[in-house]
């Protein structure tokens, strides 16, 4: 297997909150400095690069005929011919997010959708989807590695990147997610699982028991938050006494709402919840 250490990388920010690059900066071991000095040669990143204007775009165009990895956060707005997001102006021509993702996406060795918006539209495509945003797979003819999450945990990205560099493409599920990260549901490994098994449910936030009846989406969300936890493993939403809102599952946010449900009684369980109670 070829070692791709030092390969060029472009990180594109499209229609979103730019929270995935902030989340990436929260990564430690490897940290951002290790990533750019010992893993990849980062040539373009909107929030961090020194150049601006046309000079910045030159960095982007220079990579086109080279071997590179493309990481993308944010969705692609299709409204008004894509003009709902302009990412730069090249010699008087405004370049849309749609144009740039298609230009780079078909040429990259690997494309990684980082976070919910790039993976499937996410919050940027929340109903009624005013900007007509879609995930990047919808506008590319090639396979995209999907890392849904809002934001993407830095280790999900850096772990995937490490796999690509040292071992090639990781095993992906049928929706393009790396199995080593997205293979097991939150519910299966939740630290409050024993309360669920005994039917001991919290009725409000702040209680130490199972939050299934408050609307926890842990059973429907496959990702490793319970064992990986966040921000150098200091905490995660369930330990902060709130339920999982399913941010790492396709369909977030619309399919996960309402996020919080007070007063869920046995009599008004959703079909999905009944299934969980039967299966688990």
């Amino acid at each position: 297997m070829a070692d791709l250490t030092g390969i060029k990388m472009v990180w594109l920010e499209l229609n979103g909150c730019s929270g995935n690059i902030i989340s990436l900066l929260d990564g430690a071991d490897p940290g951002f400095d290790y990533m750019i000095s010992s893993m990849v040669d980062l040539v373009y990143e909107h929030s961090l690069m020194a150049a601006e204007g046309e000079e910045a775009l030159e960095h982007l165009f220079r990579v086109l005929d080279q071997d590179f990895i493309l990481a993308v956060e944010g969705a692609v707005p299709l409204k008004n011919g894509g003009r709902y997001q302009i990412v730069g102006n090249w010699q008087g021509k405004e370049i849309t997010a749609l144009e740039i993702i298609q230009m780079l996406g078909e040429r990259a060795r690997y494309v990684i959708a980082v976070g919910a918006c790039a993976s499937h539209g996410g919050v940027s495509a929340g109903r009624p989807n005013p900007s007509e945003s879609v995930g990047i797979q919808a506008v590319l003819q090639r396979r995209v590695i999907q890392l849904p999450g809002c934001p993407c945990h830095p280790e999900w990205f850096l772990g995937t990147l490490a796999h690509l560099i040292y071992f090639g493409e990781p095993q992906l599920d049928e929706e393009g997610r790396p199995v080593f990260l997205y293979g097991i549901s939150i519910h299966r490994r939740c630290e409050r699982r024993s309360y669920f098994d005994q039917g001991i449910y919290a009725t409000q936030f702040g209680e130490p028991t199972c939050m299934f009846m408050l609307g926890c989406r842990g059973p429907m969300t496959t990702i490793d938050c319970p064992i990986r936890r966040w921000n150098e493993r200091i905490n995660w939403p369930v330990q902060a006494n709130t339920n999982c809102i399913g941010c790492a599952q396709f369909g977030f946010p619309d399919a996960m709402e309402p996020f919080v449900r007070f007063y869920t009684l046995e009599s008004n369980l959703t079909e999905e919840m009944v299934e969980v109670l039967e299966d688990e």
Binding site: C17, G19, D26, N231, P237, A240, I245, C247
Partner: peptide
């Protein structure tokens, strides 16, 4: 995140 569960996009 120590109080909020995670950052960005805290729950706390």
């Amino acid at each position: 995140a120590l109080f909020g569960g995670k950052a960005p996009h805290n729950h706390g």
